[in-house]
Design a protein around this nucleic acid. Structure first.
Length: 584
RNA sequence: GCGCUCGUAGCUCAGUGGAUAGAGCAGUUGCCUUCUAAGCAAUUGGUCGUAGGUUCGAUCCCUACCGAGCGCGCCA
C-alpha cells in the first residue's frame, strides 16, 4: 500500500512524461503536505521550476500536468492555484474506505518494511560506580524510542548498553576500598550504589592529592588488566552492584537493554592497533600511537591525532569504540549503526568514523550515524544541578515527577469530589509522571539544548503527555458510558461528512508516513508533534460531534473514529515508550 | 585560534527553497442541566540575530559578522 505521497509522486511523474516527454520525467514532483488546509491536503510545486525550462507560464505547465493526471482513485479533481501550485484534496469516500481497512488492524496501517535490517543502537551507557543522571535520561529515552520505532517496522534491533565498566577509575576505587571497606571487595551487597558514589568521590580526591595512592591505583589497574584474581573479583562485584542499581531505573522507565560494556572489547584492542598499522594509518607521536586526522586541526593548526594507544601502553576509548564498531559490523552483522550520545561527542565520533572509514572497515552499504542531543539545562539556562551544585540523580528526578503527578491528581480528586483507591492513584501518578518526563524530552528537537521544567512537563494543558493521555481517556469514557465494545465494530459502514470527522480521519491515516519519517530522520519529536495534533483534532471533534447521541450512520462512524484515535494514541505513545491509562 | 551546534512571538519550542511563518504557555474574552472543562472557540503578540550573495522566489542554501553553548593529544 503506497502512502499518499508515494502515490501522488508516481502519478505526477507519469503525467510529466505524458505531457512533456521523457526528458522531464526525472524531475522531482516537489510534493508536500498542503501548507494550509484551505489549499487541500497535498500540493505539487513542480510546475514552478519547470516553467522556465519549458518556456511556458507556470500555470500553463500546471494545467498540462493536471490534464494528464489520473488520481481519481484517491483525490478530487486537482486544483491549480496561485502562481502554479497543484492542490490535491482526498475524497471522503476514499478516506472512509481507508478507515474501514484499518478498523481491525492492530498496526493501524503501518506496514512491515520489505527489507528488514539488523540495527545496533548504542544508548544509555552509564558508568559503573557512578549514579545515572539527567544526561543518561536523554540517551536512554531517545535511544529506546528509536529502537521501538525500528522494531515496530520489523527491523532486528540490538539495543546495546555500552557501560563504562573499564578504565583507570577502577584502580583508584579498588585501592580506596581496600583501605576503608575491604569487605566490599569480597562480599556482595555490602554497600549500595549511593555509598559507592561517595567512595568514588573520595577516591578521586585521594588520587589527585596523594602520590603514593596514585601509584597504588596504577598498580591496581595493571593487576586488573593482567587478570589478577582478587582485583578481578573486586571489579566484578562493583560492576554487579552498579548493574542492580541501573536495573531499578530501567525497570521504572520500562527500557530494555543488553549490557555489553567497554570491557567486552578488551581482547580485541591489540588487533585494532595491528590492523591500523597494516593499513598504514598508524604513527607514533610523543610516545603515543596515533592516527592523524583529515580535516581536524589542533590549537596550533597542525593535524590532530586520534590517540589509540597511550604512551604508557594503555588503550583509551577511541580504541574501544573502533573495536566495537568493527565487532558490530563483522560479528553482529549490523547494517545500520546508531549511537545516541550527547552532542559534545560529535567530534569524537566523526573522528572514529573517519579512521574506521580510512582503514576500510565500513562497507559501502553500512550506515553509521551519530544521533546527538543537547544538554539538559535548568530553568536558569545553566547545566542542570541541585541547589548545592550537585549533579541530580536520575532516581530523584523520577521520584519527583511521580510525587508531583500524584499531588496534581489528588488535588483534582478533591476538587471534583471523587474517591479513588490508593492503587489507582499510585498507578496513574506513576504512568503520568514517567510519561510526562519522557514526553517532555522527546517532544523537542533533540539537537538543541533542553530546558528541564517539572511544571511544564506535568502541565495539564499544552503539548504534554497528560494532555494526550487525557484524549485517550476521553474515548474510554465514551466506551464506558455507552457500553460500547469497540472490538464489535468489525464491519462498520462509515460515512464521513462533517469537517471534524474528515480532519480527524485524515490525520489518523497519516501514521504510516510519520513512522517512516521518524525511522529515517531519527527525530522522535516528529512523532510527538503528530500525536499532539491528533489529540487536538480529536478534542475538536469531541467538542463538535456528539457520538453516543448521534443517529446512524453518524454514530457508528464516530465510534470508529473514536476507537481508531485512541488506538493510534496508544500505539504512538507506546512507540515513545509511554503508557496510557484507562481513567485518570 | 580552529571546529561543531544553535539564534524564529514576553517565555518554551515547531517548521519549510515556494502561497498570509506555526503551536503551547503567559495575557485578554467567551462556552459546563450535555460522552471527564486536564477541554473547545475567539483574540493580542514576529524587521525568523545583523549585513551581503545565489534564485523566478530565501526564515531555510552560500559568505562575513554579532551573540550563546559545547568540543579541541594521552578521561569517557
Amino acid at each position: 500500500m503506497l502512502t499518499n505521497l508515494e502515490y501522488l509522486s508516481a502519478q505526477v511523474r507519469r503525467a510529466l512524461t505524458l505531457a512533456f516527454g521523457a526528458e522531464v520525467s526525472g524531475a522531482d514532483p516537489l510534493l508536500s503536505e498542503a501548507s494550509n488546509p484551505k489549499f487541500g491536503d497535498y500540493q505539487a510545486n513542480v510546475a514552478l521550476p519547470l516553467a522556465r525550462q519549458l518556456k511556458q507560464s507556470p500555470r500553463q505547465v500546471a494545467l498540462e500536468i493536471v490534464n494528464h493526471l489520473h488520481v481519481a482513485e484517491r483525490f478530487e479533481v486537482p486544483a491549480i492555484a496561485g502562481p502554479g501550485f497543484i492542490n490535491f484534496t482526498l475524497k471522503p469516500s476514499y478516506l472512509a474506505a481507508q478507515m474501514q481497512a484499518i478498523q481491525s488492524d492492530p498496526r493501524l496501517g503501518v506496514a512491515l518494511v520489505s527489507q528488514p535490517q539488523r540495527v545496533v543502537i548504542d544508548f544509555s551507557s552509564p558508568n559503573i560506580a557512578k549514579e545515572m543522571h539527567v544526561g543518561h535520561l536523554r540517551s536512554t529515552i531517545i535511544g529506546d524510542c528509536l529502537a521501538r520505532v525500528l522494531e515496530f517496522q520489523g527491523h532486528t534491533v540490538l539495543r546495546l548498553n555500552h557501560v563504562g565498566d573499564w578504565g583507570t577509575q577502577f584502580g583508584m576505587l579498588i585501592t580506596y576500598l581496600r583501605e576503608v571497606c575491604p569487605e566490599a571487595l569480597t562480599t556482595a551487597e555490602v554497600i549500595d550504589l549511593g555509598d559507592l558514589v561517595a567512595f568514588y568521590k573520595r577516591a578521586k580526591h585521594r588520587f589527585d592529592a596523594d602520590a603514593d595512592f596514585r601509584e597504588a591505583a596504577r598498580q591496581e589497574v595493571v593487576k586488573l588488566q593482567a587478570g589478577a584474581a582478587d582485583t578481578t573479583q573486586a571489579w566484578k562485584l562493583l560492576c554487579e552492584q552498579s548493574r542492580q542499581e541501573f536495573q531499578v531505573i530501567y525497570d521504572r522507565l520500562q527500557v530494555h537493554l543488553s549490557e555489553r560494556g567497554e570491557s567486552f572489547y578488551n581482547p580485541l584492542l591489540p588487533q585494532v592497533l595491528t590492523d591500523l598499522d597494516a593499513a598504514g594509518l598508524l604513527a607514533q607521536d610523543q610516545g603515543a600511537q596515533c592516527v592523524f586526522l583529515e580535516g581536524f586541526t589542533n590549537k596550533d593548526g597542525n593535524p590532530q591525532p586520534l590517540i589509540v594507544q597511550k604512551s604508557d601502553g594503555g588503550y583509551n576509548y577511541a580504541t574501544t569504540d573502533l573495536a566495537a564498531l568493527r565487532y558490530r559490523i563483522q560479528q553482529d552483522q549490523a547494517q545500520r549503526l546508531i549511537y545516541v550520545t550527547d552532542a559534545g561527542q560529535a567530534n569524537h565520533f566523526a573522528q572514529v568514523f573517519q579512521v574506521a572509514q580510512r582503514a576500510g572497515w565500513i562497507p559501502h552499504d553500512i550506515e553509521i550515524t551519530h544521533v546527538p542531543f543537547g544538554l539538559v539545562q535548568g530553568e536558569d539556562g545553566k547545566k542542570l544541578k541541585t541547589r548545592s551544585g550537585e549533579t541530580i540523580r536520575l532516581r530523584d528526578l523520577l521520584d519527583e515527577a511521580i510525587v508531583r503527578a500524584k499531588a496534581d491528581l489528588e488535588a483534582r480528586l478533591v476538587a471534583e469530589s471523587r474517591r479513588e483507591d490508593p492503587e489507582f492513584i499510585e498507578s496513574v501518578a506513576e504512568a503520568i509522571g514517567i510519561g510526562a518526563l519522557k514526553y517532555a524530552d522527546l517532544s523537542q528537537n533533540r539537537t538543541s539544548n533542553y530546558i528541564f521544567s517539572f511544571d511544564k512537563m506535568l502541565a495539564l494543558q499544552g503539548n504534554t503527555a497528560p494532555y494526550m493521555i487525557y484524549a485517550y481517556v476521553r474515548v474510554q469514557g465514551i466506551s464506558r458510558k455507552g457500553g460500547i465494545d469497540f472490538g464489535q465494530l468489525t464491519h462498520p459502514t462509515l460515512v464521513l461528512e462533517a469537517d471534524a470527522e474528515l480532519t480527524l480521519a485524515k490525520h489518523i491515516l497519516q501514521l504510516p508516513e510519520i513512522v517512516q519519517q521518524v525511522a529515517l530522520e531519527l527525530l522522535p519529536n516528529r512523532l510527538c508533534q503528530y500525536l499532539f495534533e491528533l489529540s487536538q483534532k480529536f478534542n475538536q471533534f469531541y467538542d463538535r460531534a456528539p457520538v453516543l447521541s448521534a443517529a446512524e450512520p453518524q454514530r457508528t462512524t464516530r465510534l470508529v473514529l473514536c476507537d481508531r484515535t485512541a488506538q493510534t494514541l496508544k500505539l504512538g505513545l507506546a512507540l515513545l515508550g509511554i503508557q496510557v491509562v484507562e481513567r485518570m
